[in-house]
C-alpha cells in the first residue's frame, strides 16, 4: 500500500460520501419541489378516500406543513441514521416495504448479471476463434443488436416463445425457476452487450501488442496465446464495466419485473409512482444511488491493486480507466 494509493483511496472515499449525500438531496428536490406537487395530488385525490382529519394527520406525521429546508433536514438526518420514514400509501415503514421485496430483486439482478457475463464471454472470446469471414462479423454485430432491442421486447418474446408456445414456464408463476431464468435472460442481454463491447475492444488491442506478436513468432497457437497471454489483461477492465452496469441492472429490473409479473423493487416503484408515494420513491432512488456509488468505489479501489500497470500519479489521481469518459464510449475508455 503505497502512499499514493492511500491518498487516492481517501479521496475516492470522501468523493463517494459527497455524491451519496448530494444524490439524496437531488432526489428530494426532484420529488418535492418541481411543479405538480404530487403530495397534494395524493392526499386530495378522492380515489384515495382520505377524510380531512386523516389528511391533516398525514401532513403532520410526514412534516409536510414545515418549510422545505426543514423537511429536507429531517429526511436527510433520518436517512443517515437508517430511518427511511413512513410510506404515504400504506402508512408502514418504508424500510420494511423495501426489505420485503429486496430479495426477489437481488435474485433477479444477480442472475441477470451472471447471464450477461456468460453471454459477453461467449461472444467476445468467440470473436478470437471464429474465422474472420464467417462467424466473426456476425458475433461482432451482436452487441450492437442487443443494444437496439428494448428489454421489455426481449421479455415479451421470451414469454411468447417459451411460455406460450413451448410451455416451458407458466406466466402465472413468476417465481418459478424457469420464469426467473428467462427474466434474467431478458435483463442480462442488453447488459451483456456493453460488457462484450469492452471485452472485444480489449482483446483486439491486446492481440495487436508487441508481446502478442512475439508470442506468435515463438510459434504459440491461437488457443495458447489466448489463455496464456490475452485473457487476463483484457478481462481485468471488465471489473470497471460491471460496476458501471449496476445502475442498469437496477433500472432494467423495473421493466423486467413488470413484464414477468414479479414482485420486487421494480413493482414497488411502479406502485409508488402510480400512487405518488414519495417517501418510498425517495428511499428507493437514494438506495439505488448508494449501491451504485459503493460498487463503483469498491471497483475503483480494487483496480490499482489488481492491475499493477495502473499508476496513480499524486493526490489528483482518479480512476484510471473511465474517469473522464462517457458510458457509451466504454470500449475506447476502458482499454488500458
Amino acid at each position: 500500500m503505497s502512499k499514493a494509493y492511500l491518498n487516492y483511496a481517501a479521496k475516492r472515499l470522501i468523493q463517494a460520501a459527497v455524491v451519496i449525500l448530494l444524490a439524496y438531496v437531488f432526489t428530494f428536490v426532484v420529488v418535492s419541489i418541481l411543479p405538480g406537487d404530487p403530495i397534494t395530488n395524493v392526499l386530495n385525490n378522492p380515489q384515495n378516500g382520505f377524510t380531512p382529519d386523516e389528511i391533516n394527520e398525514i401532513i403532520t406525521a410526514q412534516g409536510l406543513d414545515k418549510p422545505i429546508p426543514v423537511q429536507l433536514w429531517t429526511a436527510l438526518s433520518g436517512f443517515l441514521t437508517g430511518d427511511l420514514g413512513l410510506s404515504m400509501r400504506t402508512n408502514r415503514p418504508v424500510a420494511t416495504l423495501i426489505a420485503e421485496v429486496l430479495p426477489s430483486t437481488l435474485v433477479l439482478a444477480s442472475a441477470g448479471l451472471v447471464v450477461a457475463l456468460l453471454l459477453a464471454a461467449v461472444i467476445a472470446y468467440g470473436t478470437q476463434f471464429l474465422p474472420k469471414r464467417f462467424g466473426q462479423g456476425l458475433l461482432r454485430g451482436f452487441p450492437s443488436l442487443f443494444l437496439s432491442v428494448p428489454n421489455f421486447v426481449i421479455g415479451l418474446v421470451l414469454i411468447h416463445l417459451f411460455g406460450f408456445q413451448l410451455g416451458i414456464f407458466r406466466v402465472i408463476e413468476p417465481n418459478s425457476f424457469w420464469a426467473t431464468l428467462f427474466a434474467a435472460v431478458a435483463l442480462g442481454i442488453p447488459i451483456s452487450a456493453q460488457i462484450a463491447e469492452v471485452l472485444i475492444a480489449n482483446l483486439d488491442h491486446e492481440s495487436g501488442q508487441e508481446y502478442a506478436a512475439v508470442a506468435r513468432g515463438r510459434g504459440l497457437g491461437q488457443m495458447r496465446l489466448f489463455t496464456k497471454h490475452l485473457l487476463k489483461p483484457s478481462s481485468l477492465p471488465v471489473i470497471t464495466v460491471i460496476a458501471l452496469t449496476i445502475g442498469e441492472l437496477l433500472g432494467g429490473s423495473l421493466i423486467t419485473e413488470t413484464v414477468f409479473g414479479r414482485t420486487g423493487l421494480g413493482s414497488l416503484v411502479q406502485r409508488s409512482v402510480s400512487s405518488q408515494d414519495l417517501p418510498v420513491l425517495q428511499a428507493v432512488v437514494s438506495l439505488a444511488a448508494v449501491v451504485f456509488v459503493l460498487v463503483n468505489l469498491i471497483a475503483d479501489l480494487a483496480y490499482p491493486l489488481l492491475d499493477p500497470r495502473v499508476k496513480l500519479i499524486g493526490p489528483s489521481a482518479r480512476r484510471p480507466a473511465t474517469a473522464d469518459e462517457g458510458f457509451t464510449d466504454l470500449s475506447k475508455a476502458v482499454t488500458p
Binding site: Q15, V18, V19, I20, L22, A23, F26, T27, V30, V31, L34, P35, G36, P38, G247, E248, L250, G251, G252, L254, I255, V269, V273, Q276, L281, V284, V285, A288, A289, F292, V293, F327
Partner: peptide, 24 residues
C-alpha cells in the same frame, strides 16, 4: 463534476421515472 456524478449515480431509467412522476 459532483453534480454530474450525482446524475450518473442514479440509474438512468429510475431517474427518468422519478422526473416524469414529478412533472406529470
Amino acid at each position: 463534476a459532483r453534480m454530474v456524478d450525482v446524475l450518473l449515480a442514479i440509474p438512468k431509467f429510475l431517474l427518468a421515472v422519478i422526473v416524469v412522476t414529478a412533472i406529470g
